[in-house]
């Protein structure tokens, strides 16, 4: 009961600003509305006992990605202040596709049997993640650094070209 109430509150905190993100004509306001959305998702992670992921969510998404998005908006010509058009000729088609997608997703999630795994979340999240990184997922962990390297190089190349 209590859990459900928390979930509903957090969903509202996540979804209502998300609607503003999509509908706002002012791009900076839209980007700013992302912050409560990210914080709502943080709350959802907390209710799932994933404390470490919640910390990452705030640090990376609310603190870093939002700033990057704001930079991009402020850098693009006419991105700020100018009121962009929200709708185009394909509104009806888009709504139809989105609705169909929602129906399919809901149908599948309710029809699927989700296996419940026994066991509890480790109380100390970060340590558990660290142990997993260094033992069972050591190779994956190293490959991650390659992914980061590639994304850094890609970012620099793209940004350079634009210059």
């Amino acid at each position: 009961m209590g859990k459900l109430a928390v979930f509903i509150i957090l969903s509202c905190v996540t979804l209502i600003p998300a609607v503003i993100v999509v509908t706002s004509r002012n791009m900076v306001r839209a980007a700013l509305s992302l912050v409560p959305t990210f914080l709502g998702v943080t709350g959802l992670y907390v209710t799932l006992d994933a404390e470490f992921v919640a910390g990452i969510q705030v640090l990376i998404y609310a603190g870093a990605i939002t700033v990057l998005i704001l930079f991009v908006i402020m850098l693009t010509e006419g991105g700020t202040g100018l009121r962009v058009r929200q709708m185009n000729a394909q509104t009806k088609l888009g709504a139809l596709v989105a609705f169909g997608m929602a129906v399919v997703l809901i149908a599948f999630t309710t029809a699927t049997r989700w296996p419940v795994k026994a066991g509890t979340m480790p109380r100390y999240n970060a340590a558990a993640v660290g142990n997993a990184f260094l033992t069972s997922y050591a190779l994956v962990f190293e490959v991650t650094s390659l992914v980061l390297l590639v994304s850094l190089i890609g970012a620099i190349i793209i940004a350079r070209r634009e210059e």
């Binding site: 603190g63 870093a64 660290g130 980061l148």
Partner: peptide
């Protein structure tokens, strides 16, 4: 500003990977 933002995000993610490692080191 954009370039620094991009480089920052990559390194921020990297620092995040160091946290769990540091705890169990």
């Amino acid at each position: 500003y954009y370039i620094f933002g991009l480089v920052f995000v990559v390194f921020d993610v990297e620092v995040i990977y160091l946290y769990p490692w540091a705890v169990v080191f």
